[in-house]
């Protein structure tokens, strides 16, 4: 029997400081410290926000956000699966700085009216950034709550004008072994580049998101800079990082994990507690960060709790077959 316990770090929503207040306090404190420092000892002034990245201009999208508490920035940026930089959870945060993300362009191809090579800025400029706080459920049975900044995928796709033959959207991650040490590994079973895909209606769902930021600033490389997919009702590996290619296709593309182990990872990869991974159960997940001595287990919800928005996409499909 499982008892849902409130994690030790959890606080009720009423205790969370609204971000504007928090930011104002920061501004005030920085100002106060700066003036105090200017009056007394120079050299004590320190930037309050030492997180790397450029500050983004965005508006919150509470209708798409969970009110669960986001994982701390350090947890989100030091615990990553980004096999291009190694299979250890800390490898990406150690080695992703070897990847160059500026300038960045995305090749758009296939069944659409506006193919071509788009500079990242050009691809995103017409759109207003939003912040969406999503749950991310990894196929390895852990999860985190993450405040992404980005644009709805549907808005970008509409501008690229896919034609009626476009039934699927295919994505590719950067393939650059000289910048990505995991791609130089001799015993990797992944056939680089990393590939993912969505059915057109999944891609056009209001939850599908192209993230460019985290906690209000541009993405750190280990989280998939400069642009990545976030599909919150699917296992994390569907949310492909550092995208360089978008292709509209007639046929269903093969994703990287499907190519490696089709019995373990399907094309759909919807979060589903009723369908176990052949090697482990998917009924529960460990919500991170977890305490040292007590695993922070919570029950996994179908479609990661986003069933209301996405269950209709799979009406009549046998999800134990199309996993």
């Amino acid at each position: 029997m499982f008892i849902k316990q409130r994690p030790s770090w959890s606080v009720p929503e009423s205790e969370v400081t609204p971000e504007s207040v928090y930011l104002n306090r920061r501004k005030f404190m920085t100002g106060a410290i700066a003036s105090a420092a200017a009056l007394s000892i120079p050299g004590l002034v320190r930037a309050e926000d030492t997180r790397p990245g450029t500050v983004l201009d965005y508006k919150a999208a509470p209708q798409f956000s969970t009110d669960e508490k986001p994982a701390p920035y350090d947890a989100i940026t030091t615990y990553n699966n980004f096999y291009e930089f190694g299979t250890g959870k800390q490898d990406p945060s150690r080695y992703a700085s070897e990847m160059s993300v500026d300038p960045w362009s995305v090749e758009v191809e296939g069944e659409c009216a506006n193919p071509g090579k788009y500079a990242l800025e050009g691809l995103l400029k017409p759109h207003q950034y939003q912040e969406r706080i999503y749950r991310l459920r990894c196929v390895e049975a852990w999860s985190m709550v993450i405040p992404w900044v980005g644009v709805p995928l549907a808005e970008v796709i509409k501008r690229l004008e896919p034609n009626s033959d476009a039934k699927f959207v295919y994505f590719e991650t950067l393939n650059a072994p000289e910048q990505m040490r995991g791609q130089r590994s001799l015993f990797s079973t992944i056939d680089w580049p990393y590939r993912e895909g969505l059915r057109m209606d999944e891609a056009m769902n209001e939850l599908s998101f192209l993230a460019v930021g985290l906690y209000g600033k541009t993405l750190p490389n280990q989280n998939g800079a400069p642009i990545r997919l976030v599909v919150p009702w699917k296992y994390g590996f569907k949310s492909i990082k550092s995208i360089v290619r978008i292709r509209f296709m007639k046929e269903q593309p093969k994703s990287s994990w499907e190519m490696i182990a089709p019995s373990e990872y399907g094309f759909y990869a919807n979060v589903n507690p009723e369908v176990d991974h052949p090697r482990w159960s998917q009924k529960m997940e460990r919500r991170l960060p977890s305490g040292v001595f007590r695993p922070n287990w919570i029950e996994t919800e179908k479609f990661n709790g986003y069933g209301e928005q996405v269950a209709g996409l799979y009406k009549g499909m046998d999800l134990s077959r199309y996993y």
């Binding site: 947890a75 615990y79 959870k89 852990w142 460990r286 991170l288 960060p289 977890s290 040292v292």
Partner: peptide
């Protein structure tokens, strides 16, 4: 590493 809380967000797994 436990004492210094140096094990990241999933210490049980690392240990």
């Amino acid at each position: 590493d436990i004492i210094n809380a140096n094990l990241g967000p999933d210490p049980g797994q690392v240990i």
